[in-house]
Each structure stands twice: as structure tokens, then as C-alpha cells.
Design a protein around this nucleic acid. Structure first.
Lengths: 333, 333
DNA sequence: CTGAAAGCGCTAACAT
DNA sequence: ATGTTAGCGCTTTCAG
């Protein structure tokens, strides 16, 4: 690895001058600048960002912690974030907790040690137990997909998303629905509110509950549907609302295996609108999150906080999701 | 951020002693060790890895460059890699080229600047143009999913995978097949070899060619099938072999939309065996790569090279894929 | 405009 | 067993 010192010696200037050239300072004579540039190219100099980080107290690194890297939703988020960071000259350090709070704690610690300029977290721990401890560190954090009072946070209104689904299904006259996911999820709460407002009750047994931290969501959802219909007649429900695309994928598999027509005999509605929703057959009606916008804002917030400190109080963004109606709930032809 | 120096002052010892405690050196008296540990906890010390990297010339960072982060195959790989790196105390820096060679070049440069201890690349550029230039740098690279003569490389035999598919389809008496992907792909070449050996010819028009760097593979595959059947009768082919799961997903969608029975009227075979293969309906017969093993070896190779230099000559691993037969090619009930 | 020198936080001889 | 010191590669005053 060739260093600034070496190119300084070769070009017959001081290290400071090389540094100035590299940083685009105007205080360098054209002649020296040219000489330095020549040697930089000739010797193939690459700056040492660790040294820069140490000297500047800025790493241009953003850490991200997610609970499940295998979920396409997170991958699409990561993809947008990575892309957005590149635009700003940042790099992404990803860490996966696999739903384990201890792993989350570990990553919180090691990412901090890496001098990240900011952290984007999709919380794993219950009640934000781990991330709340970051409060008395100087690190700026953005909580993604959930709202958090202490930190900047960006999410959609899940309950509004649930309401969209409810209104859609009700407009189709579908009164009995199976919910596949985590009953405490805001989207289901919003959904149930609407039904309650209309005086329609969804029986308890129609809330299928995943174990917290369930890793094979597809399989769990598949099993849920199979189990439900082992006990219930096919015409007892008219629709299934899945907590996310992974779950919907499992639901779809099960429903088709049972030979039920979608949406004729049973409608399926999903959440997140990843490539799975768009490309399944039938294509899934799904609640879509404005991921690109969320990613853009997240990166901007992080960078802004880094420079302008924690002076301003936390920004809480709650964007509105939208419902994309496709063939899994409404026959088009 | 509290530093070693501050700990040293608080504990009334030298910085070197703190460093020794932290590195687990035995050359510290129990008393001082205890005192130091107390202050470390009290003050909430976190080491500065940039400084460590600078002093040690080791970052414990591994970079990875992939051409398409949205492909489930790659994110399953990334997931395994991240997990494996964590076991070794490494972190993963991911970069996505989106099929753009210029972006690949950019990342090669910036990742190097970040002092990564090693690089795992899934090549984007034709003929390895970009990565070949790493040869005269000291960085250790592992090429993943393809074989490369200069660097350590880990891949499966794609042509063997293609042969597995060919033999499987032939055993089912399927003589005319539509290939959806990139005709120059080894898996298709292997596939065609077997057919040729049996004296069976697949007409040129049955090779559907994606544009290089095609980003929406699902859609492209969907379109390919639709287009094929716009011109051809349904019974002209008995099977479709898709280049990967993303393509197979599109194929599946199209075939079902056309109302064809799978595998009765048409069989579908895929490659990579991601969660898509496992969970589609019908579940896809697919060629499976030993991802976990590949990830483990990749990380071990990188770390080994880092410590033992480029002395030994490159290791080339070509693992054998296996064919998982599911309902998309063979009716089970 | 340019160079010398101090410092970022940590490690690793080298003394003692 | 412990402290002192000299870097690691870069940025940034401070002089000139």
C-alpha cells in the first residue's frame, strides 16, 4: 500500500501539499498540483480511510441492523439504502440479528466501535430495550419501520395500511377473514378496528399467531392455512390477510394446494408489495410502502444529524402506504 | 467517545496497561486489571476500530460486491456470509453494482480504501476486466459463483447442473425444451451437450436470450414465455428450463396464466433453489447449490490468505450441485 | 503557496 | 509487571 508520504517524497513536496491536492484545496500551485497528480497515478495511490476516519472523526460509514436479512422486504430496503448511500459517498455495513436480542446487542456494540457516522435500525428487541441504551452515546440513529420517540424514525402507518385492506375487503363483501401473522401487529389492529366499526366481529380463532422471531415465515404461514382448513370448512372465510409477502407466499401455496380458486373462493391480501406480490400468480393485492422515499430520507436524516448534532428534536415521519389491488382479490377479466 | 487514555488516567495506570488488559495479556497484575475493568465499565469505553485498524494493519472487514442485491440467490449468499463472518469477528461491507461495470470499478476502489482484509466478488464485468486489475494489489480476493484462474474461486459446476436437468427431463421423455436465460450460460451448454449426445436437437428459437445485465429478470422471463406461445402451439415443448429462480418465478406466472397444467402439460425446472423454488406452487424442481458450505469456505479462504499471504497458489473449488425434484416436473400424488 | 509539527486512538517494541 | 516511546496514515493548525 503506497502512502501519502511516499508520493510526497517522489514529487518532492511535503505531505501536507499532497493532502491539499487530494482534498481539492485551491492553495496549491498548478505546477505542484500537476506533479503530485502524476505521481498519484503512476504509483497507484489509494487513500487509507481508516487514517482519515481517525483524523477527521468521520467514517462515511453507516451501519444497519435488521432482524431478518432473508425477508425480501428488508432486502429491497437495503438495496435502496445502499444505492442512496453511494450517492452521498457512504458505505453500508449490514448486520443481521435473526431475531435474537443478544445478537442485536452485540452488533450495536461492534458497529459503534467501527466509528459509524450513524445507524439505521429495524428493531429486534421488545420495547426497544437495546437501542434505547444508545441514547447517552453520541451516535445518531434512525429507527426504520417503527415509530420511536427518542430517535428520528421513519415508518408508514401500519394501522392505516390495515384499514385500507379492511375497507377493500368489505367493499367486496368479505366479512370473515383469516389473519396470518402477529396479532399484536398494528396493521391487524387497524384492520379489526374497521370491522368493529361496521359491527363485524372476527372470531379469535381466525388470528393466527406466529411465534415471535419466527424465522421461516413462509412455512409458518403455509402451516397456518393448512391447519385452519383442517378444522374449518372452505366457505367459512372469504379472504386471508397475510402479515407480509413472505407469509402471503406460504398462504398462496397452501390455498392453491387445497384447490381453492383465488379470488373466487378465497381472496388473499398481502403487505409490503415486494417482488413476490408483483410476480406471484395470481398477482397479490398488497399494501405498498414508499421504500425509495423512506431510504432517501433515512440517509439524509443520518447525515444531517451527524453534522448538525442532536440539537434539534427527533423527527418522526409516518408516511401513508397505498393499496395496490391485483388479481388475488379482484378478478380482472 | 471515551478513549484508552482517559481510562488510563482514571485508573492511574499507563495506556499500555489498559491496552494489555483489553487484549487479554497475562502480563498484568490482577489488581490493576480489576481497576482498569472497573473504569472501563464505569465510563462505558468502546474501542476505536479505526485506530486499531491503523495500528494493526488489519480491519476485520470483508468487502463483498454483487451484481444484483435483489436476487434472492445473492441475498441468501449474503446472509450466510454475514453469519459466517460474525463467527470470526468480521463485518461485512456490501456493495451492489446493479450490473454496471463502472460501478464495479468504483466499489473496487472505495472498498480498497477502506482497508478491507479481503474481498468476495461475484463478477459483474465481462471477462473479469475490473477484478483482474486487483492482481498487483496486495488484497486477497475470492471469486464466488465463477471460476477464476488468478484468484481463489468457489463455484459449482454449472454445466454439471445443466446435465442433471437434462438427464432428469430426458428420463421423463421430454425432448423439446425451452431455455430461458442467457444462452452462453454454462448450465445451458451442459444441458445441450447431453441432448446432443442423445442425438436430440433443440431448435435455436428455443433459446431465449436475456439482455446482458437485465435487471428485471422475472418480467423478462414472463415475457419470454408469453412471446414463445404467441408463436408456438402449447404442445411444441414439454418443459421449460429457467436460468435461475427469479426467471422461474416469471415462467411460472406466465405458464399458469396460460392455463397450462404443471407438470402435466409443461414441466418447469429452475436453478439455485432459493426460497422461491421451495415455496412456489407447484414447488419447483431445482438445482441446488451448497451455499452454506460455499460461504464458510469463502470466509475461511479470505482470512487464511490475509494471514498467510499470497504465497500459495490459488485454490479453485468446484462443488457439485444437486437436483431437487419437486412437483413442477414430477407429479407426486 | 508551502512545509513543519502536532494529534487522532491504539499497538508493540523497548526499557526497567 | 508496567511505563515510555515510536509509529500507523492522514488532516490541520501554525509559521513563514
Amino acid at each position: 500500500m503506497i502512502t501519502m508520504k511516499e508520493i510526497a517524497e517522489s514529487a518532492g513536496v511535503s505531505q501536507a501539499t499532497v493532502s491539499r491536492v487530494l482534498s481539492g484545496s485551491t492553495l496549491v500551485s498548478p505546477a505542484k498540483r500537476r506533479a503530485v497528480m502524476e505521481w498519484i497515478n503512476k504509483l497507484g495511490y489509494t487513500p487509507n480511510m481508516s487514517a482519515q476516519t481517525l483524523a477527521n472523526k468521520q467514517s462515511h460509514l453507516i451501519g444497519m441492523i435488521v432482524p431478518d436479512m432473508k425477508n425480501p422486504f428488508f432486502f429491497e430496503v437495503i438495496d435502496y439504502l445502499e444505492s442512496e448511500m453511494k450517492r452521498h459517498g457512504y458505505h453500508l455495513l449490514v448486520a443481521n440479528t435473526r431475531g435474537d436480542e443478544n445478537v442485536e446487542r452485540y452488533h450495536l456494540q461492534t458497529l459503534r466501535a467501527r466509528q459509524i457516522d450513524g445507524l439505521i435500525v429495524v428493531p429486534t428487541s421488545e420495547n426497544f430495550a437495546n437501542i434505547n441504551k444508545l441514547k447517552d452515546t453520541s451516535i445518531s440513529v434512525v429507527v426504520l419501520t417503527q415509530s420511536h420517540e427518542m430517535y428520528d424514525s421513519i415508518c408508514i402507518s401500519h394501522s392505516y395500511g390495515g384499514r385500507l385492506v379492511a375497507n377493500h375487503l368489505l367493499s367486496l363483501g368479505m366479512q370473515n377473514v383469516l389473519l396470518v401473522g402477529f396479532p399484536q401487529d398494528e396493521k391487524f389492529i387497524g384492520f379489526l378496528e374497521v370491522y368493529r366499526e361496521k359491527g363485524i366481529k372476527i372470531p379469535e380463532e381466525n388470528y393466527f399467531d406466529f411465534k415471535k422471531g419466527e424465522q421461516d415465515v413462509v412455512q409458518a404461514a403455509y402451516d397456518a392455512v393448512k391447519e385452519y382448513f383442517r378444522i374449518h370448512a372452505f366457505d367459512e372465510i372469504s379472504a386471508i390477510f397475510a402479515v407480509n409477502d413472505l407469509a402471503a407466499f406460504g398462504v398462496l401455496h397452501a390455498v392453491k394446494e387445497l384447490g381453492l380458486d383465488i379470488p373466487g373462493e378465497i381472496a388473499v391480501v398481502s403487505f409490503d408489495d415486494t417482488f413476490i406480490s408483483k410476480n406471484s400468480f395470481p398477482a397479490l393485492t398488497s399494501v405498498s410502502q414508499p421504500l425509495e422515499e423512506m431510504a432517501r430520507i433515512a440517509v439524509e436524516l443520518i447525515i444531517d444529524r451527524f453534522h448538525n448534532g442532536s440539537a434539534k428534536k427527533p423527527v418522526h415521519l409516518e408516511l401513508k402506504p397505498s393499496l395496490l389491488v391485483r388479481e388475488s382479490s379482484v378478478k380482472t377479466n
